[in-house]
Amino acid sequence: MKQLKTNNVMLHTLVRIVSFVVLAFSIYLFFAGHNNPGGGFIGGLMTAAAFVLLYLSFNMKTLKKALPFNFDLLIGGGLLIAFLTGVTSMLFGFPFLTQFFEYVQIPFMGEVELTTALPFDLGVYLVVLGAALTIILTIAEDDK
């Protein structure tokens, strides 16, 4: 994509704020997923959307500065996390991908539900985020 030469102060300022709001909201959606609309798929997609917004209004360089690593790693890491969650239950003699949950008291936060579905969903989140970003940004980078 051709880079915009003009100085879009308005756009840049706005996008800086908006993208962080979107990012924060996406994290919220991810954690809310087990009990309210949201979850790994939606969270991951929204995070990806925030980064795509950043890319659209700034450029590749800025985005790479914000995300100084390879997105392929997200995909692999996510798959690994999701898979290991499944394997863990096998170590205790349960079938692959058996999930557990427990309500525990954590100081200052009150009663919190901890589930093994959360790391699994984290895996989903990372794969979706990684895949979406990889697809978009690979094409964007291809200027040849």
Binding site: L45, I135, T138
Partner: peptide
């Protein structure tokens, strides 16, 4: 359908890039 939407995104992207 939720999984289907995400998968069709992946597939559409792949075909699109293939066309490209």
């Amino acid at each position: 359908v939720l999984t289907a939407i995400v998968i069709s995104f992946g597939v559409t992207s792949l075909i699109l890039v293939l066309a490209y």
